[in-house]
Computed example of a mutant assay.
Amino acid sequence: MNLRSLLPSMLIGAVASARSMTPMATLAAARVAGRGTTGELVLLDRPLFKYGALAMGVGELFGDKMKSAPDRTVFLGLLARVASAGIAGAALAPKGRETTGAAVAVATAVPLAYLTLAGRKEAMAKIGQTRSGLIEDALVVAAGAAVVAWATRN
Rank of each mutant, 00 (worst) to 15 (best):
R81G: 12
T130R: 14
M66K: 14
G128I: 06
S9Q: 05
V104T: 09
E98I: 05
P8Q: 12
T99N: 12
G57C: 05
L134C: 01
S17K: 04
A28G: 03
T130P: 01
G128H: 08
L11V: 01
R131F: 06
L11D: 02
M124Q: 14
A146Q: 04
T116A: 02
L134F: 12
L43V: 00
I12V: 15
M1T: 07
T100G: 00
P23L: 09
G86D: 09
G13R: 13
E40Y: 03
A90K: 07
A33Q: 12
V15Y: 10
I12A: 02
V32L: 13
L54A: 00
V140G: 03
A107W: 08
A33M: 14
G63Y: 12
L43E: 01
A102E: 09
T37D: 05
P70W: 14
V58P: 02
A149V: 07
A107F: 06
P111M: 09
A33E: 11
N2A: 04
P94T: 09
L117W: 11
A146D: 02
A33I: 01
G119H: 11
A53M: 12
L6C: 02
T26Y: 07
V141N: 06
A123F: 12
G59D: 01
S5Y: 03
F75L: 15
V74K: 08
A113R: 13
R72H: 10
L44E: 10
S84N: 10
T130A: 10
V32W: 13
A138E: 06
L11I: 01
L78S: 07
K67T: 05
V106K: 10
A91I: 12
K50I: 00
G119A: 02
G133T: 04
A90R: 08
K121L: 14
S5V: 00
I87R: 10
T130W: 13
T116L: 06
A18M: 08
A123E: 08
A102Q: 08
G34P: 05
M66S: 10
K67I: 00
V110E: 04
V148D: 11
A90E: 03
A83K: 00
G128T: 05
T37N: 04
R31Q: 14
L92I: 07
L76M: 13
A143P: 04
E40I: 03
A90L: 07
M56Y: 10
L79G: 00
A53Y: 13
T100L: 14
T152A: 01
F49E: 02
A25D: 09
G34E: 05
L44K: 08
L44P: 06
M21C: 00
F75T: 11
L11H: 04
E136C: 00
Y51V: 00
M66T: 01
L134Q: 05
A118F: 13
T99W: 15
A113D: 08
A90W: 12
V140E: 10
A109C: 06
L134H: 04
S132Q: 09
A105N: 06
V42W: 15
V148G: 06
A123R: 07
A151W: 15
A85W: 11
L115W: 13
E98M: 04
L43T: 04
